[in-house]
């Protein structure tokens, strides 16, 4: 973050591969809603994949740290904190930043490679997920103040996903066993967060065993469907794929038909701020968002 005299907040957004390509509706939602919270997004040039915290990290951790450090260097050179919108990018960039700030040996190895391209990791910025930035720099009250169309009587099953919160010592958002950040964000736009047994569960995407992945998804969806909710709310594009596209796969494999709208938090914030469903790309989802929009009187 960079603040000038009147408290103006500036961040370098890092949208990452999935949001900027397959799920650009989430990028649109973030770009439209953040200015209404008094935050300016300053686009920087040259970011690559974060890189991917599952398979890239699984191939070579030093390559993974080095490419992550290069992305962090770009923000350091601009003097801006990184704002991440994807839990995968959050995982990679926040962990890499933490590791390289605390482990001199690894920092030495990474900087020896970065020197080849004339860059250096100096540890001068923070990497934070957008939800954490809103809580800490902007405040839930400012979110509530930006709302022109509260999502009244709109019941949302929360899915935290793993990498906003864990590992707790590295991500340092709040206790991963008892988080409240998403409930507070939903309450700020007038929606009703609905507690359920799967709210902290893993979506299963990163598991290489396809049967296990599908079974995890099936059980989580069954839990959501058993609740009286209007949508599942989440903040991670990977979890989104697992539940949006995943519902079609589950319907085919188990002949259990689900029609559960899956919404990214910033799409819901955008609706509450008065943007149209089209401006937030809500017509793009595999599972129609129409029932949720109808509940809000928007279709």
């Amino acid at each position: 973050m960079s603040k000038n005299g009147n408290g103006h907040k500036k961040y370098a957004p890092f949208f990452g591969c999935l949001i900027s390509t397959k799920h650009s509706q989430f990028e649109a939602a973030v770009r439209r809603t953040m200015p209404k919270l008094g935050a300016e997004l300053v686009d920087l040039e040259g970011f690559s994949c974060c890189p991917d915290p599952i398979y890239y990290k699984a191939a070579d951790k030093l390559d993974w740290l080095t490419l992550a450090a290069r992305n962090i260097c770009i923000a350091e050179e601009a003097g801006l904190d990184l704002l991440t919108c994807c839990s995968g990018c959050t995982s990679t960039l926040r962990e890499a930043n933490h590791t390289l700030k605390h482990d001199a040996e690894l920092r030495g190895k990474v900087n020896a490679r970065l020197k080849i391209i004339g860059r250096e990791f100096t540890g001068t910025i923070e990497v934070r997920n957008i939800a954490m930035i809103i809580r800490d720099d902007i405040g839930y009250d400012a979110v509530a103040a930006s709302v022109t169309r509260p999502l009244e009587n709109f019941r949302v099953a929360i899915h935290y996903g793993c990498h906003l919160l864990k590992p707790g010592a590295v991500m340092a958002v709040e206790d991963p066993a008892q988080p409240e950040i998403l409930q507070r964000l939903l309450a700020a736009i007038g929606a009703t967060p609905v507690w359920q047994t799967k709210h902290l569960s893993c979506c299963g995407t990163a598991c290489q065993n396809e049967d296990m992945k599908t079974e995890i998804m099936r059980d989580n969806l069954a839990e959501f469907a058993a609740l009286d909710v209007d949508a599942v709310g989440l903040i991670c594009p990977t979890c989104f794929d697992q539940y949006d596209l995943g519902q079609l796969q589950i319907s085919r494999k188990y002949q259990t038909k689900y029609e559960m709208p899956i919404l990214y938090y910033f799409q819901m914030l955008g609706l509450a701020q008065g943007f149209t469903p089209e401006e937030l790309g809500l017509q793009r989802h595999k599972v129609s968002a129409k029932p949720a929009l109808a509940k809000l009187g928007l279709s």
Binding site: P53, I54, C162, H163, K166, P167, G168, A169, P176, C202, G204, T205, A206, C207, Q208, N209, M212, I216
Partner: peptide, 19 residues
């Protein structure tokens, strides 16, 4: 090992910091 879901629960629960 490829069946790991990378959820990081074990990182948080381990009393020995095995990660």
């Amino acid at each position: 090992v490829w069946e790991c879901t990378n959820c990081d629960n074990c990182f948080d629960h381990c009393p020995q910091d095995v990660r």
